[in-house]
């Protein structure tokens, strides 16, 4: 059983993002997806701090600290890109104008509930940022994650035990072992990496998984 690398997984997600899509890539691993979008294609990357048409990291001598992404890292603006204030930026999400949002997760339930902002640890200082707005706003919310946590527990679960970010908001999970479509009837496996079987996924997740039609 060969797990997909983070870059292979980013490339896999990128295949499902069509040219012309307005896309928000969450902080962390999902930002790598930008490296695998078809070169020369028009993709509109949104950053919640007020950017559409966000471009890659600039060389050091061109860094402008007025031009940063949601992770507070320096970025660039592509030709045709634009700026706007926070009210407009979150209207783009909440109003359903963003086509696809890709987020990381601590846990996702088979019905699409998402937990990705808080571990629930009593001494943790909470910080939510735009996670809850992104989770419920985009037309499609994808999660990109390893199927198992570092301690070997499935992150695709029957019910989330971590504090929720949003209810029934995730439509698809791209993991290092398989791709799952989620919905009211539970999770359906649409792809598996070589060497993985449905029985193996059932064993790892403890879920009554089905193959997609």
């Amino acid at each position: 059983m060969q797990r997909m690398s983070s870059d292979a997984l980013a490339a896999r997600v990128a295949k499902d993002i069509p040219e012309g899509a307005y896309v928000n890539l969450g902080i962390g691993l999902p930002t790598r997806i930008a490296n695998y979008l078809e070169a020369g294609g028009d993709y509109f990357l949104h950053s919640e701090n007020g950017i559409l048409g966000m471009g890659p990291t600039p060389p050091d001598e061109e860094i402008d600290w007025d031009l940063i992404n949601a992770g507070k890292q320096p970025v660039t603006l592509l030709a045709g890109g634009c700026f706007f204030h926070h009210g407009d930026s979150f209207s783009m999400m909440r109003g359903g104008h963003i086509d696809i949002c890709v987020l990381g997760a601590y846990q996702v339930s088979e019905k699409g509930d998402l937990a990705n902002w808080h571990t629930g640890a009593p001494d943790a200082i909470p910080a939510v940022g735009g996670a809850m707005d992104l989770a419920i706003g985009a037309k499609q919310v994808f999660v990109m994650m390893n199927l198992l946590s570092k301690s070997g527990e499935s992150k695709l679960v029957k019910e989330c035990t971590y504090p929720l970010t949003g209810l029934a908001c995730v439509s698809r999970v791209y993991s290092d072992l398989a791709v799952f479509d989620l919905g009211p009837d539970g999770a359906r496996v649409t792809e598996m990496v070589e060497g993985v079987t449905l029985d193996k996924l059932r064993e790892l997740t403890g879920l009554d998984l089905k193959l997609a039609d």
Partner: peptide, 28 residues
């Protein structure tokens, strides 16, 4: 949540009494 912060600030600036927002529903 960041977007709720934005719309609550906008509500104050726009003279609205409150807003119904989908963000955060069902969460702590």
């Amino acid at each position: 949540p960041q977007g709720n912060m934005a719309c609550r600030i906008q509500a104050a600036g726009s003279g609205l009494g409150a807003v119904f927002t989908p963000t955060g529903y069902g969460t702590m």
